[in-house]
């Protein structure tokens, strides 16, 4: 589904490559944690999948297509197959929950009856059916992130990218989001989740790809956040995640 082949990305005015000779294969329906400290290359990896950037060398293939050779007017079609979730939710403050999710379909020209059917289904999936008329500021952080997940998933993308989706959430809420992403993954959607959240990674026991200075230093099938570390469970495990804000 996502295949990186000897990918190097060097940003202009930067001596160090953000990604250096990365080769990685993410199969259809996989769930992959992308871990590593800030500046390790996680965000660059996601940007290349979304074709926000093109690699300096090597090839990035997404859903069978070489993204660097995609003409600019076909890029939107690529992005329609990818849902994206961010740490800061990125909801539209003046639209309610339903409208925020519907927005993703409106802007790609989906017919009204399709929207009227799919949006409630998706809100049901994320557990927000009864809060469809609420505005984002009336929701908790976890609920806002669920709206963001619903928006990312409403067009049934084949790939879901999540960039630190639990970064702003407390451990319990983070687990809820994780369960939601897991459920989406089980529908056959490939999920790539960049995270700092040790406990989430350690509890999930899924594939872990660790990046450091733009290189893959580890790729474990059922890995932990730190190789060799004892799986940490419980309240102490959240020490690596930022303080909960909501």
């Amino acid at each position: 589904m996502i295949r990186f082949d000897g990918v190097t990305k060097t940003y202009p005015r930067s001596a160090q490559p953000a990604l250096a000779d990365v080769t990685l294969d993410v199969g259809r329906g996989d769930f992959v944690f992308l871990v590593g400290s800030s500046g390790s290359g996680k965000s660059t990896f996601l940007r290349l999948v979304l074709r926000e950037d093109v690699p300096t060398s090597g090839t990035v293939r997404v859903a069978g297509r070489d993204v660097a050779r995609l003409s600019s007017w076909k890029v939107p079609h690529l992005r329609r197959q990818i849902g994206t979730v961010f740490q800061d939710f990125r909801l539209l403050a003046n639209k309610n929950v339903f409208e925020n999710v519907a927005f993703a379909l409106q802007v790609i020209g989906k017919p009204r009856h399709h929207i009227a059917q799919v949006v409630p289904e998706t809100l049901e999936l994320v557990g927000l059916r009864d809060k469809a008329r609420r505005l984002p500021h009336e929701l908790s952080g976890g609920e806002q992130q669920r709206v963001a997940v619903a928006r990312a998933f409403v067009n049934r993308p084949v790939i879901l990218l999540a960039d630190e989706p639990t970064g702003n959430l407390d451990p319990e809420t983070s687990r809820g989001i994780m369960r939601l992403l897991d459920r989406i993954n089980r529908t056959g959607t490939t999920v790539v989740m960049a995270t700092h959240d040790t406990s989430i990674v350690d509890e999930a026991r899924k594939r872990v790809v660790a990046l450091s200075h733009g290189r893959i230093i580890r790729d474990d099938a059922q890995g932990l956040y730190d190789s060799g570390a004892v799986p940490a469970v419980g309240p102490m495990a959240s020490r690596r995640s930022p303080a909960a804000t909501s």
Binding site: W73, R79, G83, R90, F103, G109
Partner: peptide, 14 residues
């Protein structure tokens, strides 16, 4: 808004 539109694959025209 435009950032989200880009992300969900809205075309340049829209």
């Amino acid at each position: 808004e435009t950032g989200i539109m880009r992300l969900v694959g809205a075309s340049k025209g829209v």
